[in-house]
Amino acid sequence: MAKLMGPRFKICRRLGLNVYGHPKAMKRASKGMARNDKKLSDYGTQLLEKQRLRAYYGVLEKQFKTYVKKAIKNRGITGDLLLISLESRLDNLVYRMGLASSIRQARQMVNHGHILVNNEKVDIPSYQVRVGDRITLKEASRKNPIFQDNYLNRGSFAVPYVENDQENFSAVYLRIPKREEIPIEINEQLVVEFYSKYV
């Protein structure tokens, strides 16, 4: 299965943003910011923001373009709809609930069958979780010390649209998030402008 790979720290430096949330990546990202402060064309600024958003969620170009097309076709603010679709991915919500330390790890957990949605195994990272769905770590996987450490030390992961039940290693997707609640530094309007010429 295709996935976004590559050295995380180099990607953060190139994008000038810590898209992976790793503490060590912060220094690399700040070094990249100096380079990205150079005068960019409108196209260059839009392209950089698109690459940042893709890196945040670990989505390849073809799949990302599908999310953009869907957001453009639906009623509402295109940028907000795009972020909501990405935020509702199963791998992202596994990360948001604190079971994984990164999107990459969350994707791996889903691929390997560790995650249940409404008590059914789902091994598709891009699966769109609906409001009210319950995400649970499979009981046999709860003894894994990596997952335990991630979940029990998840204070910084808390978002208001995901309600955690730590005792049962589960969470409910409570509601569609508001834009200001989504914890990413991005100008999604620039991403929409980038694709408006091609989609």
Rank of each mutant, 00 (worst) to 15 (best):
K24V: 07
L17C: 11
A100G: 09
V59D: 01
A71R: 00
R54I: 01
Y67E: 09
F64N: 04
I176W: 03
R104N: 11
R52C: 06
L48F: 14
N74A: 15
E139M: 07
G76F: 05
E163D: 08
Y20H: 07
N92L: 00
P177I: 01
E61R: 03
I72L: 15
V19N: 03
E185R: 05
E49M: 10
S85N: 15
A140W: 12
V191E: 02
V122T: 05
R175T: 04
F9C: 11
K65P: 00
Y20P: 01
N168M: 08
R8V: 12
E180T: 06
V122S: 02
K65E: 15
Q108M: 09
L93I: 15
V131L: 09
R179V: 01
G21L: 04
R175V: 04
Q189V: 03
S101L: 02
S141I: 03
N92P: 03
K10E: 15
R142D: 07
K3Q: 08
Y151R: 03
R142Y: 11
Y43D: 15
Q108Y: 06
A100E: 02
A100H: 00
I186R: 03
R104E: 06
Y20S: 14
L86Q: 09
G44S: 09
F157S: 13
I124F: 07
V68G: 08
F64D: 03
G6A: 12
A140K: 13
G58K: 01
H22N: 10
V19H: 12
Y151N: 03
A158C: 02
A171L: 06
N187S: 11
D165V: 03
E139D: 14
Q148E: 13
R134G: 07
E181Q: 04
K70L: 09
K50T: 13
N168K: 13
H22I: 13
K39E: 15
I182F: 01
R89L: 07
G98A: 11
S126F: 01
I103S: 05
K50A: 09
K39C: 05
A100I: 01
G21Q: 03
L83I: 09
G155P: 01
S85W: 05
I72G: 03
S88V: 01
V117E: 12
E61S: 07
I135F: 04
V94N: 08
L81W: 00
E193V: 01
R134A: 12
A29I: 05
K65W: 04
T78H: 11
K39T: 14
V131T: 14
L40I: 00
I11F: 09
R130A: 12
D80H: 10
S101D: 06
L17A: 09
E87R: 02
